[in-house]
Simulated scan of single mutants.
Amino acid sequence: MSETYDTFKRAFNLIEADTEELRRIVFQLRYQVFCLHYEYLPASNYPDGLEKDEYDERSVHMLVQFIPTGKFVGTVRLILPDRSNTESSFPLELNTQIDPVLYNADAATKKYTAEISRFLISPDFDRRRRDRRKPSGDNQPSNSAITIQSATNNVPVKERRKEERRKSDRRCLSFYMVLMAAVVRMTVAHDIKYWLSAMDPALNRLVGFSGMNFDPIGPIIDYHGLRRPYLGVVNDVLHRVSERNFGAWEVLTDRGKYCWPKKN
C-alpha cells in the first residue's frame, strides 16, 4: 500500500449523494463556491441558496467528506448519457467548440460517454489547510500572498476570482486526485467508457505528470474562466496513471477495485 493511498483513506470519505438530504448538501456547496465565492453564476438566480440545473436529474453526485471534522468539503457530478435519446446534448457540446475530427459524437459513443461537471473543493477548506501550514505564531499572510493581493487590487472582482480559481486549480493537485477517485467510482457503476470535461488547460498539463490528463478536442474559450473541451478514454487514462504514479492509481481505483491496472 502506498503512502498516497494510506493518506487518502485516513483523510477522506467518498459518499454518493443518493438521498434528498445529501443532494441538498451538494447544491449548497455549489451555491457557496460558484455563486458566492467565484461568482460564475448569479446568486440572485438561486434565492433558496441551492445551485441546481436541468442536468442534475440525469446525473450522479458524489460528496467528499473530510474525516477529521466530518464536514463535506467537495463535490463532483457525472452527467450521464440519455440512453433513451442519444440526440441529447451534454453541456460541453452546447457551450464549447468541438472539433468533429477529434471527437465523433455518434450514438454508439455517446451511449457510454459522461461529462464530468461541478467539480469543486471548498475554498474555505483549502484556506484552512494553508493556515495550518504556517509557522506557529505567524498571523500574517505569506509574502507570496501579499504580492498577489497587491498586484490584483485594481483588477475587477470577477477577473481576480477567475485568476484565483486558476491558481487554486493548480495548487490543489491532491484534491483533483480525490475528486477523480469519486468520478471513477461513478464511472464504473454506470458503465461509462469516455469522459468529457471542460478544463483549465494549465490544470490538464499539470495532472499529466501523473497520467490524469485528457486529450483536447477543441480550442480554448472563456467558459467560467479559460476552459478547453477535453475527452478522456477511461481505460487509457487509468492505464497511464498506473504506469506513472502507482499511488495515484491506488487512490483512483481503490487499489484496483474499480478497474484493472492493465488495458483490456
Rank of each mutant, 00 (worst) to 15 (best):
P261A: 09
F72W: 09
H37F: 12
R185D: 00
N154Y: 13
F27E: 00
V73R: 02
A198N: 04
R77P: 07
N85D: 07
R160W: 11
L231R: 03
R10F: 06
L63F: 11
L226M: 10
N264P: 11
K134V: 04
V237E: 00
S117T: 15
R205H: 11
I221F: 03
V251S: 07
E57S: 15
L252D: 02
A107N: 10
R255I: 10
N139H: 08
L231D: 07
L63E: 09
A17V: 15
Y103E: 08
A11C: 14
E159C: 04
S242W: 07
D124P: 06
A151N: 13
G232H: 09
Q28T: 12
I15E: 15
F175W: 12
V33G: 00
R129Y: 06
F34D: 05
I67M: 06
S88F: 04
L63C: 04
R255P: 11
D222W: 11
K162N: 03
R23L: 15
R132G: 09
L29A: 03
V241M: 06
V60M: 09
R227P: 00
A248H: 00
S122L: 05
V184E: 14
R132L: 10
D215W: 11
T96G: 05
D191G: 02
F175G: 14
A198D: 04
L80M: 12
S89D: 14
K158T: 03
R24E: 15
G218D: 06
C35N: 15
S117L: 02
G211V: 05
L231V: 05
L50M: 15
V183R: 06
Y40L: 08
F119T: 04
R165T: 04
Q32N: 13
Y40A: 13
I116G: 00
N213S: 15
F175A: 13
E51V: 12
V101A: 14
D191V: 00
K134A: 10
P216V: 12
A43Q: 14
V64R: 04
Y258W: 14
Y258H: 10
M1I: 09
V76Q: 12
N13F: 08
K110W: 10
H61V: 08
R133W: 10
E163H: 01
V241G: 00
R129E: 12
T113W: 02
P68R: 06
C35D: 10
S59D: 14
R166E: 11
H37A: 11
E243D: 07
E115T: 05
G211S: 08
P123H: 01
G256P: 13
V101H: 01
L206E: 03
V183P: 05
A181Q: 09
L50Q: 08
V184M: 13
L252G: 00
S142P: 13
R118K: 06
H239W: 10
V64Y: 02
R228G: 06
F66L: 05
D215P: 07
C172G: 07
R83C: 00
R10T: 05
F72R: 09
P141D: 07
D106V: 01
F209N: 12
D56T: 08
V157E: 03
Y46W: 15
R10K: 11
F209W: 07
G74Q: 12
V241H: 07
V64Q: 02
S168C: 03
D99L: 14
R244H: 07
E93I: 01
L41V: 14
Y112G: 06
V76D: 09
F90E: 15
L78M: 01
P219F: 02
I217Y: 03
D106Q: 06
